[in-house]
Amino acid sequence: MKLLALDTSTEACTVAVSIEDRTLERFELGTRHAERILIMVSELLAEAGVGLAQLDAFAFGRGPGSFTGLRIGAGVVQGLAFGIDRPVVPISSLAALAQGQKADRVLAAFDARMQQVYWGAYERSPQGLMALRGEERVIAPAHVPLPEGEGWQGAGTGWDQYHDTLTARLAGRLAGWTPGAFPHAADLARLAVPALAAGRAVRADEAVPVYIRDEVAAKQRPRDRTE
């Protein structure tokens, strides 16, 4: 199995190639995702000694995260996958962040601006894969849902921005938080390989971002009086 994974949902621009039991990765922080992502893909494939047409599948961080970043990632993976007719595995960017932490219980949070965070609680399965508990959401830090049990580890830009509020909210349940944590494409690939085997891939044109904020707005929007 040869799979290329990428994530541009945050300030991190990251690409990985998974070849059987070997994974190579590129990771950069900055604001040049649109300029850098295809260069990073080309460099990584060259390092791995793999041609684009030799890939079996793609995976991408489908969000939540930066609207611009998500559009870049989705557009790139659509173009690459469509060109060689390969399936795409959408993976939560919060799940990829959680997968990369050492803890088995992770409260993943991205700064969503507007005094909110993108939030998800994850626990590691016996197979070593992070599984979502509840649902991902966009919410004010002071109102994040309280997870069951103790020993949870915080990670992500939401914690960097709102750690005081989140720590106070989760008192008694929190073991600590990891500053400066971002999703890595290598962890995204780790989640994507079993997801592909389980049949959770989509066609290239179906590889679209999940913004969450738009979904919340749609649920809260008043119904048209003509309905």
Rank of each mutant, 00 (worst) to 15 (best):
K2C: 01
L3I: 14
L3G: 06
L4S: 11
L6W: 11
D7L: 07
T8E: 09
T10W: 13
T10Y: 05
C13A: 13
C13R: 12
A16N: 06
V17P: 09
S18G: 07
S18A: 15
I19K: 02
E20H: 12
D21T: 14
R22K: 12
L24Q: 11
R26S: 15
E28A: 07
E28V: 03
G30W: 13
G30Q: 12
M40G: 03
E43D: 13
A46S: 13
E47T: 09
L52W: 11
D56P: 10
G61M: 09
G63H: 00
G63P: 07
P64Y: 06
G65W: 13
T68N: 11
R71H: 04
G73A: 04
G73R: 03
A74Q: 09
G75L: 04
G75F: 08
V76L: 10
V77E: 03
V77L: 05
Q78T: 05
Q78S: 04
G79L: 13
L80A: 03
A81M: 08
G83T: 12
G83C: 14
I84M: 10
I84K: 12
D85Y: 08
R86K: 15
P87K: 14
V88G: 05
V88R: 00
V89R: 06
P90S: 01
P90E: 11
I91T: 09
S92M: 02
A95R: 07
A96L: 04
L97C: 10
L97V: 14
Q101K: 13
Q101C: 14
K102A: 15
A103R: 08
D104H: 10
R105F: 02
V106D: 02
F110Q: 07
D111T: 07
A112N: 00
R113P: 02
R113D: 02
Q116W: 08
Q116V: 02
W119L: 03
G120C: 06
A121C: 09
R124V: 05
R124N: 01
R124Q: 03
P126M: 08
Q127I: 06
G128P: 04
L129C: 04
L132F: 01
R137I: 05
I139A: 05
P141S: 07
H143Y: 09
V144E: 01
V144Y: 05
P145M: 14
G149F: 12
E150Y: 06
G151I: 01
W152H: 04
Q153I: 00
G154F: 00
G154C: 03
A155Y: 07
G156V: 05
T157F: 05
G158V: 07
W159F: 11
D160C: 09
Q161S: 03
Q161H: 11
Y162S: 07
D164W: 00
L166N: 00
L166V: 03
T167Q: 11
A171Y: 00
R173K: 13
A175C: 12
A181P: 02
F182C: 09
H184W: 03
A185S: 14
A186N: 08
L188D: 01
A189D: 04
V193T: 12
P194T: 07
A195V: 05
A197R: 15
R200L: 15
A201K: 10
A201M: 02
A201S: 15
R203W: 09
P209F: 10
I212R: 10
E215K: 04
V216G: 00
A217S: 02
A217R: 10
A218Q: 14
T226D: 14
